[in-house]
Design a protein around this nucleic acid. Structure first.
Lengths: 229, 229
DNA sequence: CCAAAAGTGTTAATAGTACACCCATGC
DNA sequence: GCATGGGTGTACTATTAACACTTTTGG
């Protein structure tokens, strides 16, 4: 016997993306004004529908690329939102993904070609459907993930100062950290390379730049190391 | 303009459940032999399809109840598995849920009425499609969740001994724990009630029974307490 | 010479880990 | 009276948290 699937209900499956950026001061999300009904003119996450011939990761990447021109960034599936009437127009489920992007590197393509806008997570407009809930869940996941995996670097330029890194973690975790303790902890992890190069923008003295050493990190993970901040 | 959803692809959405139980010795999962093609006769998680008029949590509960007679247990959404050819018969996505059940309390209904079988997670048959992957992900999530939320109790009888609790955590975390340190830690959390009642099965002396005090736990959470084992 | 951010160590407190003996009971 | 699992506390170690002054340099 072959089970006949043809009597089962099929559904529309959306993919919505919470796109995080960091501008040296605030954690931000990228939103767009929805240009069709329902909820036309209101702020929304970037989304689209899953196609038959792609999996969800591919759909999330396609949608991100289509709406921002951005490719190859850290993305992670978050949760499947499924309340029956979440979209009043039609029964739709939505799989939320979040992405981490380096604002500086992508500022050009974003502002030039697309109508998206950055908002601080401490102050963003209310969103359509259940998108606010998605954002809150994404922030919670981001807090956890950045504490247990070295993904915070995805939000920074390739070369960054200790102060930028500290500020980033302070912003994500929403708490002040002690400068010396933070640096000691980071240094003890031994997964950064100190460059012979200084950032001269932030001070007269200049501050050394660091890079995340992915190769070293991976080697350490092989030996049982696990990142924890 | 109303966006026309009618050209978008619709998909079949399955819900598969990883059902965990604990028998005082091993962490186990409940599996069934699939009785239809493809993969007829092979072991599988319990699953079914999402219906139009229910959300995913409801579907997971319905499927669990339908296949086991069990209701009202801890369930949590895990991940949406979406590889294009994961089910060779038809394009199907599957949202995995995991459930925690108290084997003792439900042994009757399970063995009497249904054809499901418990397997130790240390030794279970290989499963259809991507179900092995689902189980592995569920175990990882269970480890994390039981370390940060007091959900381990869901796997034990309402009244349990310290030894049962310790054995449970040892099994989930897959490491030996020190008896005194474990008890001290648990006691310092101050979320259990010690009963004036002993379990006389496991020893001649008998060992005191405890209950999880959900009310106390919730009150403490309100005040900023967070469970961590 | 001064303002502004960078860089750097030590101490105290806390949390975690290791460890061994007596107790109560049924047989 | 002895075998079996139950119950208990302390000393040591490692980790985390608190804290302030000197350095560099452009203006």
């Amino acid at each position: 016997m072959i089970h006949d699937y043809s009597f089962e209900d099929k559904v529309l499956l959306a993919v919505d993306c919470i796109i995080f950026g960091f501008d040296e001061e605030d954690l931000q999300i990228l939103l767009i004004k929805r240009d069709f009904e329902p909820e036309k003119g209101n702020w929304s996450l970037m989304g689209g529908f899953l196609k038959k011939d792609e999996d969800l990761d591919q759909a999330a990447n396609r949608i991100l690329h289509h709406l921002t021109g951005i490719n190859n960034v850290y993305m992670e599936q978050l949760y499947n939102f499924s309340k029956v009437n979440r979209d009043p127009a039609e029964r739709t489920l939505s799989v939320a993904y979040y992405a981490l992007i380096n604002i500086a590197e992508h500022r050009q393509e974003l502002t030039e070609n697309y109508s998206a806008k950055w908002f601080k997570i401490s102050d963003y407009p209310s969103l359509i459907f259940d998108h606010d809930q998605m954002v809150q869940k994404a922030i919670a996941r981001l807090r956890y993930r950045t504490s247990t995996n070295p993904i915070g670097f995805e939000l920074l330029p390739e070369k960054f100062t200790m102060r930028q890194l500290q500020k980033l973690y302070e912003t994500i975790l929403n708490e002040k950290l002690d400068k010396r303790n933070f640096i000691n902890k980071i240094k003890s992890l031994d997964i950064l390379v100190k460059l012979n190069e200084k950032d001269m923008v932030s001070s007269r003295k200049g501050s050394f730049l660091y890079k995340f050493d992915a190769k070293k990190y991976n080697a350490k993970v092989e030996e049982g190391f696990s990142f924890r901040l």
